[in-house]
């Protein structure tokens, strides 16, 4: 069971990086709007999994994306950040009880899922674009980018979640 989980996460890691750099980075809807699917790895990481390991894996995930897109360390920073705040986001989206039962992300109510995914995606994008543009006088440009790309990413992440959701019936 434990081995299966390692394998599953490894495959997910590699597939997400490849899909991101080979496919999604080329979309450029309206010239600059790009969806980012790879935060999905952090979003659906097992709820009871080791938090330290998640932070480390997120760093490697972000760094792989950075390596392909020559962006220094912006994806790594954004990923590490959402990996660290994940327990807090989980707590306010699903309530305190999330730690004790074995619920899955896609079996919670839609509004709870929305709150969780939206917060993760928007925080991620805000950190990402702040570091990319690296100039607080362009805050409007950062917010605009965050909003448009964030909506796009959320849609792509939800589609992926539902496409690959395991039927529990």
């Amino acid at each position: 069971m434990w081995n299966n989980e390692i394998l599953q996460n490894t495959v997910r890691f590699i597939v997400l990086v490849l899909v991101q750099v080979l496919l999604l980075d080329k979309i450029l809807f309206l010239g600059y709007i790009n969806p980012y699917l790879y935060p999905l790895f952090i979003i659906i990481y097992p709820l009871t999994g080791n938090k330290g390991l998640l932070i480390l894996l997120s760093f490697l995930l972000g760094l792989s994306i950075d390596m392909f897109s020559d962006s220094g360390g912006i994806h790594a920073a954004a990923s590490v950040f959402i990996a660290w705040i994940r327990p807090f986001v989980l707590k306010y989206s699903f309530g305190v009880s999330y730690e004790y039962n074995t619920m899955r992300v896609h079996s919670a109510s839609l509004s709870q899922q929305m709150a969780y995914v939206l917060s993760m995606v928007f925080v991620h994008h805000f950190v990402l674009f702040s570091l990319e543009i690296f100039n607080m006088s362009h805050i409007l440009f950062i917010l605009k980018n965050t909003l448009f790309s964030g909506v796009f990413s959320t849609i792509v992440i939800f589609c992926t979640l539902y496409l690959f959701a395991k039927r529990t019936t």
């Binding site: 760094l63 950075d66 390596m67 020559d70 220094g72 590490v80 660290w84 570091l131």
Partner: peptide
């Protein structure tokens, strides 16, 4: 988190200051 976040920021600043000596590149 703090350690890895600092490393990432260092990579980012490094890539802004001078090209050629960055750590991660395609």
């Amino acid at each position: 988190f703090l350690l890895l976040f600092t490393i990432s920021i260092a990579f980012t600043i490094n890539s802004h200051t001078y090209h050629g000596n960055r750590f991660v590149s395609s």
